[in-house]
Design a protein around this nucleic acid. Structure first.
Lengths: 242, 242
DNA sequence: GATTGTAATATTGTATACAATTTGGCACGC
DNA sequence: GCGTGCCAAATTGTATACAATATTACAATC
C-alpha cells in the first residue's frame, strides 16, 4: 500500500508565503536589490514574522533573495555574468530535455506539442507578443515534462525562474523574434522525426542564442522609466521573446 | 566602491543548523525515512525550535527532508527511480563541467588535476578504498571548479550530495573499481589534450556507468547490519567507488 | 571643516508561549 | 467480533516577547 501521490496538503502559511513572495519577485513587483523589511511584509501578507522568515530562508536557498546577517534580506540582484553562467547550464538542461522527451514522450504529448507550436506561430504572425511569450514558456515546460525526469523538471524550473527575472529587466531586441521562431521550427522538425540527438542539439543551440540576446540586452540597461519620458516607447512592458 | 566579496559573515544559528543537519543526513547518521522530532533535535543541537525549523525548511527545498504538514518532518527516502533521474541530469552536468574545464582551466589547475589523478591511481593500487573515494570526489570537484561557473557548481553540489547519500546505502560492486580507474585514465588523457568535447563525453559516460552500478547496488538492499553479525565484513563501511 | 567616537534607534536573531491539527486509544453500538 | 465515533495526548504551526547587532545621527576633538 503506497502512500497516495497527492496527500491533500492543506497549505501552511510559510508555504503560501514562499509562493506569494516568489511570484512577487518574478513579476518584478519586488525588483532586485530592494530591501525586504520583515515587519512591512508581514502586515502586507497578513502573517506573522515566523512563517515569513521561514519563507525567506527557502527563497534564499533558491537564490532569489540574499540574507545578510543582521542587515536584512534583499531581493537577489541580477548579475549579467551570473546570467551567462546560468545559461551555460540551461543549454545543457535543454539538450537533455529534448533528448529525453524524444525517448519518453507519448504520441499524444507530441501531438499536443504540435498544436502548441501552431499556436505559437499564429501568435507570432499576429504580433501578439505577450501571448507568444506565454505559449513559448508552456512549450518548453511541456518538453521538460515529456522528459519524465522530476529532478530535471525541478532544476529546470529554478533556472527558468532566474532567467525570466533577468529578461524582465532587459530591453529585449525584438529583431530576434523571427529568428527565434525559426529555431522553434527547427527543433519541432526534429521532434516530429523523433530525432533525439538533433532535437537536443537544436534546443541547446536555441538556448545559447537566447542567452546571447538576453545578455546583450542586459548590457544596455533598460530605459529608466522614471525621470525621462522622452521616447514614448511603443510597448510599455519590456518584452522579450525566445 | 563595490562591496567586499566576503563580508565577514558571522554564522547565525539557523545557518549552522543547516550545515550540521545536512552533514548528519549525508553521513547517514540520520537515515532516510526516520522522523525528525523537532524538540529532540533542539536539545541535541542546543538551539531553540525557531532556527531549527528554518533549517528544516531549507533542507526541504534542497530535497533532503520531507515536510508533512502537522505530521512532522522525515529524512527524504532514497527512491531508486529518482536516483536514476538524478544521474541523468548528473551526466549532463559532468559533460558540461568537462567541456568548460578544458576551456577555462588554468595550466596550474590542470597540473594539480594530474597530481590528484596520480594519487588516485596510487591509492587504487594500494587498495585504500576510503582514501581513493575521497580523492575521487576531490577530483570531480576540481573539474567543476575549473569550469568557472558558480551556477554549475551549486547545482552539481546538490546532485552530488543526493548521489552520495544513495551510495552510502548500497553495497557497491567492487568489481567496478578497476573499470572506474580506467575511465578516469580516459578522461584524463582527453584533459591533457585539452579536448573539450571528448573530455565532456567521457565524463558523462563515466557518470552514466557509475549510475548503472549504483542503481544495481540499490536493488540489492544492503545487509541489515543490525541483528546479524555473521560475516565480520572486511570493511565496516559500505564502500563505493566511481 | 573634517573625522572619529559614542549613543540612540531600528531591525534582525532567538526563545518561549499559545493555537491548531493529527494520531492513537478506548468505549460504545452494530 | 468488528467497525465507528469520540476523546486525549502529543506534535507541529503560529504569534509574540526578548536579546543582540548594525546603522544612523550627533557631538566632541583635531
Amino acid at each position: 500500500m503506497k502512500a497516495p501521490a497527492r496527500p491533500i496538503r492543506r497549505a501552511t502559511l510559510h508555504h503560501s508565503a514562499v509562493e506569494e513572495l516568489r511570484a512577487m519577485i518574478l513579476d518584478g513587483e519586488l525588483p532586485p536589490g530592494v530591501r525586504v523589511p520583515e515587519v512591512q511584509l508581514c502586515e502586507q501578507l497578513g502573517i506573522s514574522r515566523t512563517p515569513l522568515r521561514e519563507a525567506l530562508r527557502v527563497l534564499s536557498s533558491e537564490g532569489l533573495v540574499e540574507l545578510r546577517p543582521h542587515r536584512g534580506a534583499i531581493v537577489a540582484p541580477v548579475d549579467p555574468g551570473e546570467i551567462g553562467a546560468i545559461f551555460e547550464v540551461m543549454d545543457a538542461l535543454e539538450r537533455l530535455a529534448g533528448t529525453l522527451a524524444c525517448r519518453n514522450g507519448s504520441d499524444a504529448e507530441f501531438a499536443k506539442l504540435d498544436r502548441m507550436h501552431d499556436q505559437l506561430v499564429t501568435q507570432h504572425e499576429a504580433g501578439e507578443r505577450a501571448a507568444y511569450f506565454l505559449t513559448n514558456r508552456q512549450i518548453h515546460a511541456q518538453i521538460v515534462a515529456m522528459a519524465r525526469n522530476p529532478a530535471l523538471e525541478a532544476t529546470y524550473a529554478g533556472f527558468a525562474a532566474k532567467i525570466l527575472r533577468a529578461r524582465s529587466l532587459a530591453n529585449y531586441d525584438t529583431g530576434r523574434w523571427q529568428e527565434s521562431v525559426d529555431e522553434h521550427e527547427g527543433f519541432m522538425a526534429a521532434f516530429r522525426r523523433r530525432d533525439a540527438e538533433e532535437a537536443g542539439a537544436l534546443l541547446a543551440d536555441h538556448s545559447r542564442r537566447t542567452a546571447v540576446a538576453v545578455i546583450q540586452a542586459l548590457r544596455q540597461p533598460p530605459v529608466q522609466a522614471v525621470g525621462q519620458e522622452g521616447g514614448a516607447a511603443a510597448d510599455p512592458t519590456p518584452m522579450d521573446v525566445e
